[in-house]
């Protein structure tokens, strides 16, 4: 079973062409993905996150057995962000929230995130962050939230990428409520993380279609090539995410 915990549904972003939900699901299925967490991309840079949350909801309504959504809000919107989080989970059935601090122009460790994390705890959903790039999304900036809110589930969406993976590893060792997502993560980092943190807190994501329409093959092969047991690979490729999201 392959559950892709990190995909983006969008129409156009810079020179990247997105696709509609139908093509999106067809392409994932053709690469043997059994289900996916879908998130916005355009919504990170536009004021009205409601509009993009509604778009994600339309996609999950169309493919309820296949897609679940992580919405987004702008932390600076204050109480508006909180009520939108409640709408996303209670009315739209979303399973978590995604933040991209540098695209959304806030600092992951900033005070405006505190009520957001508290609300996520109240709603019992995880928060997934882009991480691995300064100045707003270093792995330890996000880990600071995990430190302040031990009851929150915080997913490092790229496990530090190339430049911050040692910080991400450190963060996961230090804070048990951190989940490491292998998504654009270097091979050396995945090996060390599985060895030191254990496969239970590692989940798979592809970033589809940002790294190309055929990126699933590449991302899955990175996991399959790891020198770990088949059980550990299965856990990382799907079972852990299923457990974390209560799917």
């Amino acid at each position: 079973m392959i559950l892709d915990g990190h995909t983006h549904l969008f129409s156009q972003f810079g020179f990247l062409r997105g696709m509609d939900a139908g093509e999106f699901v067809d392409k994932l299925k053709s690469q043997r993905v059994d289900g996916a967490v879908v998130m916005t991309l355009e919504g990170f840079t536009k004021d009205d996150s409601r509009l993009y949350n509604d778009q994600l909801h339309a996609a999950t309504e169309r493919y309820p057995e296949y897609l679940c959504a992580f919405g987004t809000v702008h932390p600076r919107d204050g109480s508006g962000a909180i009520s939108e989080m409640q709408r996303c989970v209670k009315e739209l059935g979303m399973k978590g929230f995604k933040f991209h601090p540098w695209l959304q122009a806030f600092c992951a460790s900033g005070r405006e995130m505190f009520p957001i994390v508290q609300e996520a705890v109240a709603l019992d959903v995880p928060l997934l962050f882009h991480d691995g790039t300064p100045p707003y999304c270093t792995s330890l900036q996000i880990a600071y939230l995990a430190r302040c809110f031990p009851e929150a589930t915080i997913i490092l969406g790229h496990s530090g990428l190339r430049d911050y993976w040692r910080e991400a590893l450190y963060a996961a060792m230090e804070y048990e409520n951190i989940i490491l997502q292998f998504c654009g993560t270097p091979d050396i980092a995945m090996r060390e993380m599985i060895k030191q943190v254990g496969p239970e807190r590692c989940i798979f994501g592809s970033d589809f279609p940002f790294p190309g329409d055929s990126c699933i093959e590449l991302a899955v092969s990175q996991i399959k090539n790891l020198d770990v047991s088949d059980a550990a690979k299965d856990a990382i490729l799907g079972e852990n995410l299923k457990r974390i999201l209560n799917l």
Partner: peptide, 15 residues
């Protein structure tokens, strides 16, 4: 390599 790997990087060029 060993940061990334030949396996991963060659597959990318093939794709």
């Amino acid at each position: 390599a060993p940061g990334s790997s030949l396996e991963t990087e060659l597959l990318k060029i093939r794709l």
